[in-house]
Structure formats: C-alpha cells, structure tokens
C-alpha cells in the first residue's frame, strides 16, 4: 500500500467534447519506476494532471492507498510531487529559497523546519549553493533541478514528471538522469525520450488516443518495432 499509485477506469472528456482518456487502469507499486509514453495528444499530460487533482474525471484514483476525493485532495497533493514540463511555470518566487520553501510553508512548518527541508531538497538535487540565487536567470537544466527540489521539499511519496528531459542539452540531460536515478521515490515519468526510458525506467505504459495500449517491461515493449511505429513512438 505504501508509496503506491493505482488508477481504475479513468476517463476524461474535455468541455468541448474531446475524449482525452478512455478507461485507463494500472497500478504502480512502491519504488517502481514507470515510463508513460505515447504520441502528442495521447493524453499523457491529461492523465498526469488527474494525479494531483487538477483535473477530475470519471473513475477512481488511489495514492498510497488513499482514494482521491474532494476531501483528501490536500493530503494527496502533499504525497504527489508533480513536476511540470516548463520550469518557468513553476518558479514564481524571487529566489530559489522561496520557491523551494513554498511547499513546507504552506504545510505550516516552523521556520527552522522550513530551512531544514529546503536544505535537504537542494542537497538531493545537488544545488545547495544556489539557495539565494534568482531562479529566473538559471539555465534550463538548473531550473529543472530546482523545480524538482520545489516538490522534494514536500517529502512526496511519488514523483510525477512531464517530459523531464525536454529542452536539455546532452550534459544537462545526463545530469538529470543521474539525479533521477538517485531519488528513492516511486516514479511515473511521461516522456518522448526513449533512451531515458531504456536506461532508467524498467516498466513502460503506452498511451494512444486516450487508451492504454500496452503495459509491460520496457525491454520487451521497446523491442517491438511494430508496436512502437503503430503508436508514433519511432
């Protein structure tokens, strides 16, 4: 039950009638690292947004054994660390410290506790010296790390990321992959980067047109070239 994620028959239709998700179900155990792949428009981002209650569709979601409802929303959000694709959307404080401190401050921790959490989070992403820097001026790779730190400071059980390696040069990308491999949280990463998937994520879920079309071991799935071609992955 711990650090797990389960989705049952999740469907979602946009107000304009577009059906974005169609009966998606899967379960992720604690500690697993899973890739969510699919062509653009498959519904990956839509799915992720359900996990922290930003969107509400039909079906049920359990995070660490607790069902996602209106009442448990706050609690679930604390457990799910959601990192969005564009770091600029998530860094809205003047300094790195304030951005990383947002979560703990919201949760009501004392000053010392907040400081401790910020330090720990920045250490986890290897950016301790950046604490007083201005987020806005950092490189994309640095911003992505800070964005990760902003959710790590909340001590999430599960890490959910949308296109973590998008827009990164090879060096920053390598740094990020190494960083992710160090983190202990359960992970669900939506990505186009198949090399990342092969290296880091043993399980892959393929989404296309809102449906779950495959769910299995990365090695097997990514060798099936027909499957990949059919769903716009290669």
């Amino acid at each position: 039950m711990h650090h797990s994620l389960e989705i049952e028959n999740l469907s979602f239709t946009y107000p304009d009638g577009r059906k974005a998700l169609n009966n998606v179900s899967f379960r992720i155990e604690g500690g697993e690292r899973v890739a969510l792949v699919g062509p653009n428009g498959a519904g990956k981002s839509t799915l992720l947004q359900h996990l922290s209650g930003i969107l509400t569709g039909q079906g049920r979601i359990w995070v660490c054994g607790e069902e996602l409802t209106k009442d448990s929303l706050s609690s679930i959000r604390a457990m799910v660390g959601m990192v969005f694709q564009i770091p600029d959307d998530q860094l809205f404080s003047p300094t790195v410290f304030e951005d990383v401190a947002f979560g703990p401050i919201y949760q009501g921790y004392s000053r010392e506790e907040v400081h401790q959490r910020v330090d720990r989070a920045l250490q986890a992403v290897h950016m301790e010296e950046y604490v007083q820097r201005v987020s806005y001026h950092l490189s994309t790779g640095e911003k992505k790390r800070i964005a990760i730190a902003t959710v790590l400071s909340m001590d999430p059980e599960i890490l959910v990321m949308d296109e973590p390696t998008a827009g990164l040069d090879p060096r920053a990308r390598r740094g990020l992959i190494d960083l992710l491999s160090e983190l202990p949280q359960t992970m669900l990463l939506a990505t186009h980067d198949l090399a990342l998937v092969r290296e880091l994520l043993p399980r892959t879920i393929i989404l296309d047109h809102g449906r779950l079309v495959a769910d299995g071991r990365t090695e097997e799935l990514l060798q099936d070239r027909m499957l990949l071609a059919e769903h716009g992955l290669e």
């Binding site: 809205f92 404080s93 003047p94 300094t95 201005v134 987020s135 806005y136 001026h137």
Partner: peptide, 8 residues
C-alpha cells in the same frame, strides 16, 4: 515588484 526587482 519583488520578483521583477530580483530578476530584471
């Protein structure tokens, strides 16, 4: 202003 002052 705090944000803008810090960044630009």
């Amino acid at each position: 202003l705090a944000f803008i002052y810090a960044a630009r």
